[in-house]
C-alpha cells in the first residue's frame, strides 16, 4: 500500500512542470559551480600541488565544496517539492480519497515520504553524474565520493521529512513552502551561530543538520551523523502522523 502511494506521488511529481523545472534549474546551477571549481583547480591549484607528496586529491578540493553547495541548494528547493505533500491535497479535497480508503495514517505518510525521497534520489543521481564525469580524466577516491553522496542523500531526506510535516499543518502550499524553508534555514543559522567566535554553542552545532553533513563531506562514514538524520526524519514523520490523526479527533 505504501508503494502504491509512493509510486503515485512520484508519477504526479513528474507530471508537474514544477518538478521538471526544479530538476533543470538545480542541474544548471550546480553545473556552473562545478565548472568553475574544476577550472579553478586546473588553472590555479594543480600547478601548486605538482610534486607535493601526499597532496589532497581532486575529490577533497573540487567535490567537497561542490557537495556543500548542493546541500545548500537542496535546502532551498526541498520545501518547494514538499509543499504539495499535504497542503495541496487539503486544498483540492483529494485528501478525502486517502482518508476514506482502507489505509492507516502511517501508510499515507510513509507513502508520500518515500515518493518524495524517490524523486530526490533521482535528483541526487543526476547531480552525481558531474563528479562521475571526472573519472574520465583522473582517478577518483571512490570511498570519499560515496560518503559525500550518502551524506547529501541523508541531508535531503531529512529536509523532506521536515517539509512534509510543515505541509501537513496548512492548507496553503505557499505557506508550507515558506514555513519549510524558514525552518531549514533556521537550523542552518544555528550552525553559523554555534560556530561563530562570540556565540559558540555545542548544542546549536549539534542541533543543526549541517554540522552532521560535514563528516560525510570529509569522507567519513559517521554513524553518529547517520543516527542524527534517521532520528530527525523519524521525528518529523511521527509528528506528521500525529498531526493527521489529530485532525480526525474531536477537540
Amino acid at each position: 500500500m505504501i508503494l502504491v502511494i509512493a509510486r503515485h506521488e512520484l508519477r504526479r511529481l513528474f507530471y508537474s512542470p514544477l518538478a521538471w523545472s526544479i530538476l533543470a534549474l538545480v542541474q544548471l546551477i550546480l553545473a556552473f559551480l562545478f565548472l568553475t571549481a574544476v577550472q579553478n583547480y586546473i588553472d590555479n591549484v594543480m600547478p601548486k600541488l605538482a610534486g607535493m607528496a601526499n597532496a589532497p586529491g581532486v575529490v577533497s578540493l573540487v567535490l567537497t565544496p561542490f557537495f556543500l553547495w548542493a546541500g545548500v541548494i537542496m535546502l532551498g528547493i526541498t520545501p518547494i517539492l514538499t509543499m504539495r505533500g499535504f497542503s495541496e491535497e487539503y486544498q483540492t479535497g483529494s485528501m478525502a480519497l486517502l482518508i476514506a480508503a482502507p489505509l492507516s495514517v502511517s501508510e499515507i505518510v510513509l507513502g508520500k515520504y518515500f515518493g518524495l525521497v524517490a524523486f530526490l534520489s533521482v535528483m541526487i543521481a543526476m547531480i552525481t553524474l558531474m563528479p562521475l564525469s571526472l573519472s574520465l580524466g583522473t582517478s577518483l577516491d571512490w570511498g570519499h565520493l560515496q560518503a559525500q553522496i550518502l551524506g547529501l542523500f541523508l541531508l535531503t531526506a531529512s529536509f523532506a521529512a521536515a517539509g512534509l510535516y510543515i505541509s501537513s499543518l496548512t492548507r496553503q502550499p505557499a505557506l508550507a513552502a515558506v514555513g519549510g524553508f524558514g525552518f531549514l534555514l533556521l537550523l542552518f543559522v544555528f550552525y553559523v551561530a554555534g560556530t561563530a567566535q562570540g556565540t559558540q554553542s555545542q548544542l546549536f552545532v549539534y542541533i543543526s543538520h549541517f554540522s552532521h553533513y560535514l563528516p560525510f563531506l570529509r569522507g567519513e562514514f559517521s554513524t553518529r551523523a547517520l543516527a542524527y538524520y534517521l532520528l530527525f526524519a523519524l521525528t518529523f514523520l511521527g509528528l506528521t502522523i500525529r498531526q493527521l490523526d489529530n485532525q480526525r479527533l474531536p477537540r
Partner: peptide, 28 residues
C-alpha cells in the same frame, strides 16, 4: 465503503484511467 465527498477527490493532472487505477489499488 465507497465515499464521494462534496468535492470529488480528484487529481487534475491524471487521466481518468490513471486515477481509477490508483483508486482501485488504494482500496486493496
Amino acid at each position: 465503503l465507497g465515499y464521494l465527498p462534496e468535492n470529488p477527490p480528484l487529481y487534475d493532472d491524471l487521466s481518468i484511467d490513471e486515477y481509477l487505477r490508483y483508486c482501485a489499488r488504494l482500496h486493496g
